[in-house]
Design a protein around this nucleic acid. Structure first.
Lengths: 244, 244
DNA sequence: CGCCGAGTTGAAGCCTTTCAACGCTGGTGG
DNA sequence: CCACCAGCGTTGAAAGGCTTCAACTCGGCG
């Protein structure tokens, strides 16, 4: 099996011991490959496992009684997902592949083992969960208090920031596998208005498009204008207990 | 010192051992009392501690460059707050007292101790963080995909559900210490529209008001209509490692 | 070759915001 | 002690951003 996406993620914050790496490897079970649109876990279904993303994108989404959909988060390599199954046995959101992707199962019981034997990893996972909570807050602020153009720009900057991590360099363009309908469901807009907003950003020289390739002309400028903060760069680890 | 709100919260999910209780008591430092409107922690400020709420309400909010504000969450007795300081030393949100309240400090370093010595507590804290993440998702869905009346009803139901826990019974009314401006900032609406929406709910027989007292006429009906889910009732603990 | 999903565009309507004004209440200082 | 002031709640009217409805194009897949 190839290298774990989760281990790679954790090592960006902390130099893991051999034991810590082994504990995670042991917990990760069978690998699952998904095609775009395939569902990994359905809202309301029962689940006794989390998933680690190794490659590709997914999203988690909630359905409304009225028939709409809200995309809650996008998940990239290194993310530990399906975390709602930690607190309940029923999934609170649907996990769907956006691109081709591979994930591995991580049974809840094995997570318990990690918490028992690797307190430093437990702390780091807790810190990452706290960071994700803050990222969620940013999204809430964006949807609650910003107009369509700014929401869209922020989403594109967020995707760019996440991809820059794995790309290992400062890129300014990427392939966007999302439909405009998906984008609307992520931003709380209709697909029609997403389309108009995208075209307005093009006209205003904020972005360029070529097929599904999107280029942000001056990412740093846009980050300043929207007040975008990358929540995934650094995580403080000084408070963590030492490795055993 | 009176009984810790956090211990009470955790014991709703798990029967704690004497050692576990002691570990938390040891970590909780000086008690702080706040009056409505007082700020416990300011966005951008540095902080090396979390806080445990023992009594009263607070909220966390983010400011926008444009001048607006988004209230992210309300915090009640038993909540562990300021968790953004777990991942960074800078606070990402401002914590403000809504009512009179008392909290205690919980230094990050002591949290590290708890993670090292009490893996079961660590797991439970992680599960609670996961549950909060889901609650945040619910809010995102509400703001992204629902109209003003439904957002407001959902907020009132959420407050009711939280108060029912500490009230220890099925209540259907409560004192609402929030201004309409606060409510607007929590729901992504203007205070003017909040006012119109409140009056519409009164006219439609959804709520009654008497000063700051709010009564929801048929909470169960409204829960069904809005698809409200109480995320704070049960948390699964079967996967947790055993107490040492 | 035809169909279906995705993207695009126009026009009309609705929900929410903005701007403005006024009453009420509780706290403060003369 | 009381007048004043500031903040909150309330309401109206007009404007604006986003949605809805509808139609048309384009490209890929069966």
């Amino acid at each position: 099996m190839h290298r774990s996406g989760l281990i790679a993620r954790l090592e960006r914050h902390l130099a893991l011991t051999e034991e810590e790496r082994a504990a995670i490897s042991r917990a990760e079970q069978r690998e699952i490959r998904l095609k775009p649109g395939e569902i990994l876990m359905a809202e309301g279904g029962t689940s006794h496992a989390l998933f680690v993303v190794h490659y590709g994108w997914l999203h988690s989404a909630a359905r409304l009684a009225a028939g709409g959909r809200q995309i809650l988060r996008f998940h990239y390599a290194g993310d530990l997902i399906g975390t709602s199954s930690i607190a309940w046995s029923q999934a609170s959101a649907t996990l769907t592949a956006v691109s081709d992707c591979t994930v591995t199962e991580l049974p809840k019981a094995d997570l318990g083992q990690i918490f028992r034997q690797q307190p430093r990893l437990a702390g780091l996972l807790y810190a990452i969960a706290a960071a994700e909570n803050v990222a969620m807050s940013d999204r809430l602020t964006s949807i609650g208090r910003k107009g369509a153009a700014e929401r869209l720009t922020t989403l594109l900057l967020d995707i760019l920031a996440r991809l820059r991590v794995t790309a290992g360099g400062v890129i300014d363009s990427f392939d966007l596998p999302l439909t405009q309908s998906d984008i609307g469901d992520a931003l709380g807009l209709t697909k029609v208005h997403v389309n108009r907003t995208i075209r307005a950003l093009e006209r205003d020289g904020v972005i360029e498009r070529n097929g599904r390739r999107v280029r942000i002309l001056d990412p740093e400028l846009q980050m300043r204008r929207t007040g975008f903060v990358d929540r995934y760069g650094e995580i403080e680890t000084a408070w963590l207990p030492p490795a055993p």
